[in-house]
Design a protein around this nucleic acid. Sequence first.
RNA 1: UCCGGCAUAGCUCAGUGGUAGAGUAGGUGGCUGUUAACCACUUGGUCGCUGGUUCGAGCCCAGCUGCCGGAGCCA
Length: 465
Amino acid sequence: MKRTLVREALACREFGKLVTVAGWVRTRRDSKAGFSFIELNDGSCLANLQILAPVDLPNYATDVQKLHPGASIRVEGALVASEGAGQAVEVKATSLKVYGFCDPLEYPLGKSRISFERLREVAHLRSRTNSFGAVARVRNTLAFETHRFFQDRGFYYFNAPIITASDCEGAGEMFQVTTLDLENVPKDKLTGKVDFSKDFFGRPANLTVSGQLEAETYACALGSVYTFGPTFRAENSNTTRHLAEFWMIEPEFAFADLDDDADLAEDYLRHLIRSVLEQCPDDLKFFNDRVEKGLLDNLTRLADASFTRISYTEAIKILEGVADRFEFKPYWGVDLQSEHERYLAEVKFQGPVIVMNYPREIKAFYMRLNDDEKTVAAMDVLLPNVGEIIGGSQREDRLDVLERRIRESGMNPEDYWWYCDLRRFGTVPHAGFGLGFERMVRFCTGMGNIRDVIPYPRTPQSAEF
RNA sequence: UCCGGCAUAGCUCAGUGGUAGAGUAGGUGGCUGUUAACCACUUGGUCGCUGGUUCGAGCCCAGCUGCCGGAGCCA
């Protein structure tokens, strides 16, 4: 079927043009003057198209008057200038076909406002609401513009493995992947432990918590790569900014140091913000009006602003000066608490902040040791309201230092043999970061809960749909 | 995992020991180029589950389950 999108119809001014539109009824209003009004939405934009359904349609009594929110229809008719206020154009139906009726007694979505909490229980239908349609469109733009940004800079899209069979888990709880019969797990006769040689991969396997280590191997060959895929963390996290399954973008590029890394992160975030402002104005206005007041001003301001960059040491000095306001007292050597990060991004600098060069003890082994031997070339990008959105670093490119750092972390360099090989054979300085995609969607939409910016959120005790 | 809060009509909520309420949605009628339409009438409840206290529990107590917010972990 050749159909006109609602988005196209609303922008069209060729009055009299015959069009076919199809979508889902948002609401119907009957007039005794000889017609009904139908608000039609097809997901192509936030706005609805008003359909004028005259009483002389052959199926007016049998179909039109039985339309309720959620019903699916196809309408053929003429695009005309609207006589009423509130919309410039509407479609005067010459035929209306009902694909499927929708029982208002059963259908969870009506005309009135529904809480986001309630909508999570009907996640298969929440995509039909204004809010979730807008989230989906913004999310799509952010994803597409992520590819455009990196492609334009010569980064290759790299598909990191989803299943990782490395014996050495670094940080973060992982989901185990197994084909073993959990009711009857094979055990080693001598040790009594699980015999993973019988498992699918012949060893324990997990879902990835990061594609970084693998991405490094391609960055050290192709120069610049980025991953964009699902990531899994089995942490028992129950917050508005954590998911057990989320999407992460991880650029990794060679011949780069920490400053290059921060530059890339900043350019990338700015590109995304400019893109949604340009491509999703109606959706953003909706979020600005209905979800977070001031969202448009914030995004517009950031589209051109440069981000504040401070060292961890400077950040601690600032925080120590206002230590009274914190539950946890800041001092050099401890990681920044949420309240500290929020103070920096929301109160002190009122915008994005890049904190660089953290103490080595609180950061991962692969981050490059600075000359002071006390800090590593790490960076976190903090956003107002969202908190940490990016974590990155220059990678340790010296084999001896890397092996020492692995041992200091209580692990065995041999378990990272292929990772160490990168330093053994033609090592180069390189850097990268990870961006939590849903956190970015949250920031751009003002949505308060990360569970509402991914279609089907996976959190502890929750994997319906 | 820890701390706090919540669970009553399809939905949003009121109801602090004595016969279960409102708004909204749904139905019927009226009115209208309407637009969260409006006006009148009306259907609709194992008060999350289990146990306890009491003559009597939606209300008090305990446990459980789920959800929400904050913290930790992080992106």
